[in-house]
Simulated assay, not measured.
Amino acid sequence: MSDDWNVEEELKPLKLKCTSSDCKNGHHSYRPTPKQKAANTVGQCRSCNEMAPFEWERLHKLDPEDLDYTIAALKNELIRQHYWTNEIPQKVENYARRKGVKGMEGAVEKRIRNSMSPPANDFDGRQTPVEDSAKVNAVHFAQHATASCCRKCMEYWHGIPRYHSLTEDEISYLSRLGMRFISERFPLLTETGEKVSPIRKAGKSNTKG
């Protein structure tokens, strides 16, 4: 074993991307490759080429009464499944608890409308903090879980073209989908929020979390 081995570095969590997959365990990546687009095989896993076990056309209808189907489909993709099932960091939970259901509804809708509605630009794919970011909060977790984190993900998951501004119906649909994540992952939120003490680290008395 190398003397340079560092246990802290070795145990760092894997950085998942929209292109990450774990096909042998049934968690794929459906973000199409240029080759898949050219061959018109969009909808297959980019890693193993297995066709998705759900109907893309049904997802692209953006039916707010069919969210259960959409959520079940999302959980077939590795990065979405990760956000739907992995442990929520305490600071992310605290953010949601302070907001409460009503506050989270407003925060999710505001984020979709202000940050995700404009057409895709060169910054697309980097506008939503990931779980190890100091800026991440419960809204960002909801975005990654529901494929509303960037316009590329919205396009292949929800059939929303990346180069047009979101319509009011699309904003409403994505906001409702995001709130389904919030209600599933944070089932004990109060309606209007609660006071939550900040996380205090050793030697620091004013750490907010």
Rank of each mutant, 00 (worst) to 15 (best):
Y156M: 07
E155W: 14
E194A: 09
K110R: 10
L11N: 03
K35N: 09
A202L: 06
E65W: 01
Y69R: 04
K24W: 00
R126S: 10
N86M: 07
M104S: 02
P89F: 00
G100L: 04
I88F: 00
G203H: 02
E105T: 01
F186D: 03
A72W: 05
E194N: 02
D66W: 09
F123G: 13
L177Y: 02
A38E: 12
I88K: 06
V136D: 07
E194C: 08
E10M: 06
S20G: 11
D3L: 14
F123A: 14
I112L: 09
I171N: 13
S115H: 12
E9D: 11
M51D: 09
N76M: 14
D4N: 11
N49V: 11
K208W: 00
E9C: 01
D63I: 09
N206K: 10
N49M: 13
R200P: 00
E9M: 04
A147M: 05
E168P: 07
A72F: 02
L16K: 10
P53L: 08
G26S: 04
A145M: 07
C45F: 04
T167S: 13
A142H: 03
L62N: 13
K12Q: 11
F181A: 03
K75D: 06
E65I: 01
N6Y: 00
P53I: 13
A38N: 05
K102Y: 01
L14M: 07
T85L: 09
N86W: 01
A134V: 10
T41I: 15
K61T: 14
E87M: 02
N6M: 02
F123T: 15
N114M: 13
M104N: 01
P89T: 00
K99L: 09
G203V: 11
A73Y: 06
H140M: 07
N40F: 08
P129C: 15
T192C: 02
H158P: 02
F54E: 07
K24C: 04
R31V: 13
